[in-house]
Design a protein around this nucleic acid. Structure first.
Lengths: 184, 184
DNA sequence: TATCTCATGTAAGTGGTTACATGATTGC
DNA sequence: GCAATCATGTAACCACTTACATGAGATA
């Protein structure tokens, strides 16, 4: 139920076209949520149909026309209601755990390889997050930074701590497997 | 795409009714994946229709009849193919981060309250996981334990490490907010 | 008398992915 | 000449949730 409200937040902050929002999701907004362009356009269409946003078509020179969406009073109301409502928690559901569950079928070596791959992917993601942190947030106690920068930093910290935990788990689990040595 | 394969793993290990599997999901299997009974019955129906499992109706005294599912050769083949295929990674998409993103609209106090609630939920989940670890896996280097017990323990460790990271993040973020103090 | 367990499902809706589709302009 | 960027979408499918539905026997 959150994509709808992210769009309201984004459009509420600043009127945007679908494409603008697609770009936002590829940048900082991506720390908070992931969504593809098809989903975004479909959801914008629905919000428009329900009167939570409305669009004006803006013609451009040398570029395709674009639809610029603006939030309506009804949209603000919906957003405020959502912000006040209880936050949903996520379920687990990670495929790597299913492969662990199938460990007896996979065998020790194959499972080890899966975990190594997982470890490498999370190590790479952690490296990326740390690089971003170092580049954009070099002075952690910067009094000049706006509220929004601090909020982005909080999200980034979530990414870093999660990836660290994943990494630790994969390393621990590989070590456990090495002590076990079983065949499929 | 994993539920289908979890069902094949479970049924492959031991022929089961839908209800048996529902119970499994409420116990250890729940560490690996979450699914409701509706999803399970529907998916079993599809697997049956596609010939990956087949069922026999078993009448019972004083209880409703049950359908016991068995994996077919085609089912085994599908499962082996999936186990060999690359593991998918999950996207982020947690509502609490969206509320952080909307921090300026929520205001410092309200956001703080959300984070506190999140912290408490994760603290409780961590407590539960640790209790299970202490109860069922009191002797960590138990040579008597089967492979499956070790695999369950690996999954449980994933839960513990994740919850610890979450907890650390919420505490850090609350501390950050306390240094900021902004209004909606 | 009421709730829990056993045992099965349907129906409707939301959310998300994959693939397909178009077409001009800008930069290497 | 080829890829990327700008800008929009449709169609089909898969995954998951919420609500509704039935009915017998066991336990408190």
């Amino acid at each position: 139920m959150a994509l709808k409200h992210i769009l309201l937040i984004v459009i509420g902050r600043r009127p945007s076209s679908g494409y603008d929002i697609v770009k936002d999701f590829k940048e900082v907004l991506g720390f908070f949520w992931h969504a593809g362009h098809q989903q975004i356009y479909r959801e914008l269409g629905k919000l428009d149909a329900h009167g939570l946003v409305r669009h004006t078509t803006v013609p451009q020179d040398d570029r395709p026309d674009k639809k610029v969406y603006r939030i309506t009073d009804q949209g603000w109301e919906e957003l405020r209601a959502w912000l006040r409502s209880p936050t949903q928690i996520r379920t687990v559901n990670d495929e790597i755990l299913v492969k662990v569950y199938a460990g007896e079928l996979l065998g020790c070596e194959a499972l080890r390889r899966e975990l190594e791959q997982d470890r490498d992917r999370h190590a790479e993601q952690l490296r990326v997050y740390r690089e971003i942190e170092a580049t954009y947030f070099s002075t952690p106690t910067d009094k000049e930074a706006g509220i929004f920068d601090h909020l982005v930093r909080i999200a980034l910290r979530k990414g870093i701590l999660s990836e660290q935990a994943w990494l630790q788990w994969t390393e621990e689990s590989i070590a456990t497997l090495d002590r076990l040595e079983f065949r499929p």
